[in-house]
Amino acid sequence: MKVLLTAAQLSRLPVVTVQGGEDVAEVRDVIYSPEAGSLLGLTLNKRGFFAGRRREVLPADAIHAIGRNAVMIPDESSLAEPGSAPDAVGQPPSGRNVIGNDVLTEGGVRLGTVRDLALVVGSRGEVVGYQIDKVGGGEGYIPLPAQLAVSGVALVVPNATEDFVRDDLVGLGAAVEEFRTQLGLA
């Protein structure tokens, strides 16, 4: 079954070892590539309220699976020191955050501002859309093509996106494939 989560829902999920059944960390934030729309990894907190940050990061390829209730890793050695992780994960570039960016269509229509990422989770995470604060008020969800122009100020989406703004994550799940098919990407 396809599970969609926003990055906000992903944060605070426990990181649990499959072999050990131990909760070794919890998700702090999502590291992703806005251009490629892919999840690169996760930053981590120690378990428990106010327990603070863990130095290690979790590269996406070390994730066993992401579910509704936990991020599963084979064992604690899946966590990587920032120095030994790929640069994009160990030292994620700043200034490319799309949260708060304006969403504009190629035709110049502003759809809203980005509030959060929407990810399809499972054996690996993929960023498939954004949760936005719509221009007219209220929240909506837009699907993403696989590739996208982003500047750190605005992101430009195909004109067709306007027809695929959905009210909830479930609607977005159905819209993503339809949208990508229409763009000839799927």
């Binding site: 426990p14 649990v16 499959v18 072999q19 059944g21 909760d23 936990a70 599963m72």
Partner: peptide, 10 residues
């Protein structure tokens, strides 16, 4: 059963 720990059975 894949694993048993203090947090969960996987």
């Amino acid at each position: 059963l894949l694993g048993i720990g203090s947090y969960a059975a996987v």
